[in-house]
């Protein structure tokens, strides 16, 4: 197996899950590496045999199942019709199309043919609704006041978690490898962007960090508290003699409901402001937080210098000025 091609990439290729650009790159690679072509061949044969074995192994539905389903569906339909019709009427209904519903036959003609009193009620109800909306617009509370979000304190909820999680990945190579489901920054960017519903700039961030000596290690899903969905990008740098330095970038969708503790006061997290939180009693690593208005990035590393580099890279990647 060539060193730069992972089992994961081979399988993604065989399963047709790579982009056209990645397919082209991989095919060029396969042209030059017969040992990887053998792996592709192996994966395809394995898939064929899994298909054959499982299809035989998982028997077909028993013949009586279809008739059982037919009876239960008919019974359910009859029950649904029960209030309007008797059982005998249900049976006769199945043999011919039912009358069209009121909704499907409504037309301008039917409006004119409706009893006059019904039309008057409908007009009166419409006027009452319009009047209510106008009065609410004049005297009611502003719309924004109804949907003011509950602020979530990032320091209380998320920061201790990301500090601990980063520590786990920094101290334990297996944990780091397990976390990094996506080992290619393009793949990580695509999957996490799809997962989080906003563009995760993993590729430009990797480029900017490469310039500063960092390598993309991998990315994956994460369970940052106070967020429904979140991701984790991991970068490493070889600090000769003292082992690899680890940089974590946690990404959380910014729904406008987050706050941070800033000099003793809880304040809403403002886009384009860095919040720098020194390590303390509640979390062991220094954390820098940044929001671009769509995503919140929580940067964790061992030193302020590393964080400053990462913050600069992130803002360069997002096309903004360094902090």
């Amino acid at each position: 197996m060539s060193e730069d091609l992972t089992a994961e990439m081979i399988r993604l290729y065989c399963d047709g899950e790579l982009s056209q650009e990645q397919v082209d790159q991989l095919q060029e690679h396969l042209h030059q590496h017969p040992e990887d072509r053998a792996r592709v061949e192996f994966e395809r044969k394995l898939q064929q045999h899994v298909h054959a074995v499982m299809q035989v192994q998982c028997r077909c539905a028993p013949p009586e199942l279809a008739s059982g389903i037919h009876q239960r569906l008919a019974g359910a339909a009859a029950e649904a019709d029960e209030p309007q019709t008797s059982a005998g009427q249900v049976a006769s209904r199945q043999s011919k199309p039912p009358p069209a519903t009121t909704a499907s036959t409504w037309s301008l003609a039917s409006w004119f043919h409706a009893p006059p009193r019904a039309n008057i009620y409908a007009v009166a109800a419409s006027l009452a609704l319009v009047a209510g909306a106008v009065l609410f617009g004049i005297f009611g509370r502003p719309i924004d006041a109804w949907r003011r979000p509950q602020l979530v304190d990032l320091v209380a909820d998320a920061v201790p978690f990301v500090a601990t999680e980063h520590g786990r990945c920094a101290d334990n190579g297996d944990a780091r490898a397990n976390k990094a489901t996506f080992r290619d920054p393009h793949l990580a960017a695509a999957e996490l962007s799809s997962w989080l519903g906003a563009t995760v700039s993993a590729v430009p961030l990797t480029d900017r960090l490469n310039e500063r000596g960092w390598e993309f290690f991998g990315g994956g899903y994460c369970g940052v508290p106070a967020s429904k969905r979140s991701g984790h990008l991991i970068f490493t740098r070889d600090n000769q003699g003292s082992g690899p330095a680890i940089l974590s970038v946690f990404v959380v969708p910014d729904d406008g409901g987050y706050s941070v503790l800033n000099k003793g006061a809880v304040v809403p997290l403002q886009p384009d402001n860095w919040h720098k939180l020194p390590a303390g009693e509640r979390f062991s690593r220094e954390v820098w937080i940044y929001s671009d208005g769509y995503l919140i990035y929580l940067l964790v590393s061992c030193s302020s210098d590393e964080l400053r580099q990462a913050a600069g890279a992130l803002q360069d990647a997002l096309g903004q000025a360094s902090p």
């Binding site: 089992a7 994961e8 792996r39 192996f42 394995l46 297996d174 490898a177 080992r183």
Partner: peptide, 10 residues
């Protein structure tokens, strides 16, 4: 890990 070598393809 995604890099884990699997032996069977050779």
């Amino acid at each position: 890990g995604p890099d884990e070598p699997a032996p069977a393809w050779d």
